[in-house]
Design a protein around this nucleic acid. Structure first.
Lengths: 211, 211
DNA sequence: GTATTGAGTGAACAGACGTTCACTGAAAGG
DNA sequence: CCTTTCAGTGAACGTCTGTTCACTCAATAC
């Protein structure tokens, strides 16, 4: 089972995982110049430095590879959000506390966010669905979190959901901009800060009854 | 010059324009199943019922065809917006007056909106730029319109621009949803109505000084 | 009535595509 | 130590790709 004593080479599983990672990274890089549906299995294989057939040892198709990338992207994203929400009560200002963390995560995972931004609207149907599902889950979590902290007691639960959706949609748009214009991060962030404030001032003055 | 008397066949220019339209429509239809970067010149030609080479008589590349589609989409969109803004003062409620018109236009031009939604993030760079440019123009027009009607006198001009951007971004998101779930138009619209109201309640209570 | 223009043709090209198959050879299992 | 497993190989297939070129032949121009 074990490889006995000191062995400089990797185990079988380690090598496989290394190739799998290389394939994921290559696909991410190649898709960045167009999109997932426009790249070919052979391009990916060539970039990895492996024969086209080897691809099938790891993924049944480019679409399944795409689903793996969605999974990977959102696993990291959710960890970041968990961190944001756990520390939220400590913030003197929720917006100023949270936005920079999101911006930092986008900066450090630009290619993943770029992938999500593109494939969310242009990817293969199953990939699109997977992304929308993940975003819907996050929206639901934000809604329960808003309800739990009692920040909007005058809201009906339906309206809390709509508010959460409004916020998530806005942050998605902001993330798209951070991806597209990495050099303008400071300005994008400053503008988003003001806009989110405008939006939340609306939240504070909103009453569900005035539908 | 003229074609003399009664002639059942089309003029040369008419035939050319008819083929051009067929190419635009074919590309729009084929890209709907993936995206512009993933379709081929030969697929388009086959769909039109013309030999691949004939494509070049109308467009130098698929990318230029994409730019033509952007142009076409936004020309129609701008006419609709002109109509919305001209009749805005008559509305008892601006939101209830405008949103249904936008929704109707999306319904009647679904393939164009789907194209814009996809290529906005996943299209060839020049196509993406063209779309963002058009959206920026519309945002600027909305800002001057908001400023002109004096609906937000307490706003700095920078904040009017940010508010306009917030509204346009939201409507873009709403349009994406109308495209993706045509069957839920009524619900999407009802939710968007509430969300836009939340947002604008924020606008009314916002003051530029509290940055 | 003759000359020009130009949208559409059809063959040809070199290369890339996805997928199949039988294979190798080192790591892991017993 | 011998056997099994399986990530990666390499050739082969039929099909599709963008682009070139010389061409036809009806509508237009003069």
């Amino acid at each position: 089972m074990a490889e006995g004593l000191a062995d400089a080479s990797e185990s079988r599983a380690e090598r496989k995982e290394r190739t799998r990672r290389a394939i994921l990274d290559a696909a991410l890089a190649l898709a960045a110049d167009s999109n997932l549906a426009a790249i070919s299995l052979r391009q990916v294989a060539k970039q990895v430095g492996v024969v086209p057939t080897a691809f099938y040892r790891h993924f049944g198709s480019l679409e399944l590879l795409g689903l793996a990338l969605v999974d990977e992207s959102f696993r990291s994203l959710r960890l970041m959000l968990l961190d944001v929400w756990r520390h939220a009560p400590e913030y003197r200002d929720f917006i100023d506390g949270s936005l920079p963390i999101v911006a930092q995560h986008v900066r450090e995972n630009r290619s993943h966010y770029a992938f999500i931004a593109r494939e969310r609207t242009a990817g293969p149907p199953r990939v699109r669905e997977a992304i929308h599902h993940e975003i819907a889950l996050i929206t639901r979590e934000l809604a329960t979190d808003v309800a739990r902290t009692g920040a909007a007691e005058q809201y009906s639960s339906e309206d809390i959901a709509l508010l959460a959706d409004l916020i998530v949609s806005f942050v998605v748009t902001m993330a798209e901009r951070l991806v597209e214009h990495p050099d303008s991060e400071a300005q994008t962030l400053a503008e988003a800060r003001t806009q989110l404030r405008m939006l939340l001032v609306g939240a504070l003055n909103w009453q569900s009854r005035e539908a």
